[in-house]
């Protein structure tokens, strides 16, 4: 799988290259600044891009901007954004076009290489990978919202994992449930939140995230 990587710290960039190569990814470009990243994304058209938010030359949100620009040029270009901190604001911007194929994770998640690689693959296949911290913040700021209060604790757990972008199978494995139990919970959640059920995992996640984002003005 062809990957473009953008990270300005040499050690971290090198580590990510090794990690991804070890899992059978092909690194077509490993760049260290915003303009280079944008050029690489548009020229190489990778199957997935792994991008640090803060990049030279301005050390602001250079990487995020480059990723958003590239996604406007190539709709659905899969991008996994890494950052030292996660913000609902940035998650919203990434999700705004509603096409999926986005990920937004804390850099710490790289520690668990299995899960990280899983997230990269998920994003590459058009799914989403949202950091648990983002989801927690999203749910916390929705705390006063009525329908969410009606969920049982178990349903809430399922909702959290689903919002992170995991498939039913992955959720079942995580919570030690059978897949059918998970799909029953999902059906309940969708009924309580008054959302249309969809068989497609990716579309389902987007519906949930849009719902959570949309409940606040």
């Amino acid at each position: 799988m062809r990957v473009v990587l953008a990270e300005d710290l040499y050690l971290l960039r090198d580590g990510l290259v090794r990690l991804l190569q070890a899992h059978g990814f092909e690194i077509v470009a490993a760049v260290e600044s915003g303009p280079e990243l944008l050029r690489a994304l548009l020229d190489e058209r990778p199957e997935v891009a792994v991008v640090d938010v803060r990049l030279p030359p301005t050390f602001t949100d250079e990487g995020l901007q480059a990723a958003l620009t590239a996604r406007r040029a190539i709709p659905g270009l899969p991008v996994l954004v890494l950052s030292q901190h996660v913000e609902q604001l940035y998650a919203r911007e990434l999700l705004a076009d509603g096409t999926g194929g986005v990920g937004y994770l804390l850099k710490d998640r790289v520690f668990n290489s299995g899960q990280f690689v899983d997230a990269v693959r998920r994003v590459a296949s058009g799914g989403t990978a949202m950091d648990p911290d983002v989801i927690a913040k999203l749910l916390a700021s929705n705390a006063r919202h009525e329908p969410l209060g009606k969920l049982t604790p178990r349903e809430r757990e399922v909702l959290e994992l689903m919002a992170e972008g995991r498939s039913n199978a992955a959720i079942a494995q995580r919570l030690y449930l059978s897949e059918s139990a998970v799909s029953k919970h999902t059906a309940n959640i969708f009924a309580k939140l008054d959302l249309a059920v969809s068989d497609d995992d990716n579309r389902r996640v987007l519906a949930v995230l849009t719902y959570l984002n949309g409940t606040r003005g």
């Binding site: 938010v53 803060r54 050390f59 602001t60 949100d61 950052s83 030292q84 901190h85 913000e87 609902q88 604001l89 919203r92 913040k137 916390a140 700021s141 705390a143 006063r144 606040r216």
Partner: peptide, 29 residues
Amino acid sequence: RQLVRGIHPPVLAERGLGDAVRALALDSP
């Protein structure tokens, strides 16, 4: 990360006051 947030919030550095306050608004109950 918490310490950095207390010294100078990253969104403020990256996006300026407007977006930093918007981020704050999103996190607020």
